[in-house]
Design a protein around this nucleic acid. Sequence first.
DNA 1: ATATAACTGAAAAACATTATTAATTAGTTT
DNA 2: AAACTAATTAATAATGTTTTTCAGTTATAT
Lengths: 140, 140
Amino acid sequence: MYHSEKMLREKGIKVTPQRAAILDVLRDTREHPGVEVIYQRVKKQFPSISLATVYKTVELFVRSNLIQELCLTGDVSRYDARVESHPHVACMNCGKVEDIDNFDMEYIIEPAEQATGYKILKEEIMYFGYCGDCKGVMDN
Amino acid sequence: MYHSEKMLREKGIKVTPQRAAILDVLRDTREHPGVEVIYQRVKKQFPSISLATVYKTVELFVRSNLIQELCLTGDVSRYDARVESHPHVACMNCGKVEDIDNFDMEYIIEPAEQATGYKILKEEIMYFGYCGDCKGVMDN
DNA sequence: ATATAACTGAAAAACATTATTAATTAGTTT
DNA sequence: AAACTAATTAATAATGTTTTTCAGTTATAT
Ligand SMILES: [Mn+2]
Ligand SMILES: [Mn+2]
Ligand SMILES: [Zn+2]
Ligand SMILES: [Zn+2]
């Protein structure tokens, strides 16, 4: 696309079609996909892209703060083009990860720094449970 | 130990020396160790224990709510014998994970359920940054 | 246009986790 | 207390995930 290329340039990252396509995928979805899903989508446009390129690229993007990495117990890392702190909810059955919108959350990085002595860069708030589709169908 | 065996029995889990030792390790530390560290410690007492046993046991303990699993971007899962929700801070350099004590946190599972329609079981709050030892020594 | 440093794709390697299985063990029943 | 049985263990293999390596290609600066 067009705006993704501009974002890469602004971060001083060399622009390649693969990188722009990966950033496009992440900017076009609210699904918080993992590397395999990103790979499958970019493949439609670049059939010869390698999974290793996807791994290397998301790592670069995380380092550059173009995307953020979310981690889930017992699943692969998921990626999000919204880089500001915002709460998520993950379904422990189907693996869906969603933003929680219209939800008042206090972000309290400074008090956490004072309580811990750490230099804190990021706050991650993740709720785990069962989504509307899965909570009825829970075996056991 | 003694109390760990009782905890296993109360959960209806068959008591074995390996299981009691693994629970002891987790109840005796505030380090939030991963499987490899747990394995090395239990090995002192049971030199023939297998890493696969540690994997299976922590999975069983998480399912039974004897321990909780914490996940960190770019690291293995870590385990915690304190099962109630409490905030953590992780050092992105040395991998240390600490509890944040004396820290007022509002736990808001019900509002999150209302905002999402999920049945929520667990809330995880993780701060990422650099610990006192590491924040001075950050290269680049 | 040319140069060059960085990037890609492919494959191998490293690392993490799960599955399999024969022998052992915990907890129960005689 | 001995026997029984189902579950657990240790070892290994299998699987899955992520990183490394490297030869060839490409993006950017000159
Ligand atoms: Mn998000
Ligand atoms: Mn803790
Ligand atoms: Zn679901
Ligand atoms: Zn540190």
